[in-house]
Amino acid sequence: MGSFIFKRSFQSILSLIFLVIVVFFLARMTGSPAMLYLPPEATQEQLDAYNALHGFDDPLMVQFGSFIAGVFQGNFGQSLQYSRPALDMVLEAFPTTLALAAVTMPLVLLISIVTGALAAYRPGGAFDRLASLISLIGASMPNFWVAIVGVLVFAVTLNMLPTSGTGTWQHWVLPVAVLVLRPAGVLVQVMRTSMMTALSSVYVKAAKAKGVKARTIIFVHALRNSLLPVITVASDQAAGIVNGAVIVESVFGFPGIGKLMIDSVLMRDFAVIQAAILVTALAVFLINIIVDISYAFVDPRIRHS
């Protein structure tokens, strides 16, 4: 098991290094990165000064070396807009997004595992068809649209929830609801299929032949086996939640990492984007390692491979 986790972590680190390289060279591909870091109305002197200051006139490999050294020291440069270290800004915004994800993911898993398992219990039944339809709609709705329709209905028309901002728990209802939709819609279907496979397996038959109670068969024998594909897809959806967070935070004015990124893109604040992307990537890779560990926890065959 140790070697399995080690291998996967190693792969993640490789991916991270790859990403760092891509980020670095993308920024250099358009010519002088000063053009990216400085506002469009900057004069030639300002550009030259900036280039000299940051060593952008050095050979590419020298620049790459100092970039990497900077990354390892947590130095991603200064935000243009706020003249603050980019990493500080990112780390301030990070907890909000993390909280959003931490509320969303368990909800997604709970909803999809329960709904999917119940739908699989009577395939073709009324509950199954209803669940399929709703999950299909959930997976097909553009989340930014749901967000503004939600604001229109619950905040503007019904006045039940605030339109944007943070503070009370009411502020979290719409953002979390929007974030849950797509991943839950996808996962319900995955859970339903894998539960159906598990319920038609020979080991479930064998459990019936042993006299095991129906409830135990579903929740002890079939459920644990049907979780395996769900975990795999859930880890893909974890990256999807970051996608969703970008939109949700921007619509609801949440001061998270997604909003920070969008604002920085629009303000052309490259240092912040760089820092935000690398920190997010690190977080996603950490989630993947946790997922891998839970996978090995659920399936002994992986532990022994």
Partner: peptide
């Protein structure tokens, strides 16, 4: 495969953001 994994584990929105920022 490694390359594909690297791209897949990364949120596509962020990838799009950085590329569309540069280009």
């Amino acid at each position: 495969l490694r390359l594909a994994d690297a791209i897949m584990t990364f949120p596509s929105m962020l990838l799009a953001m950085i590329v569309l920022f540069v280009f």
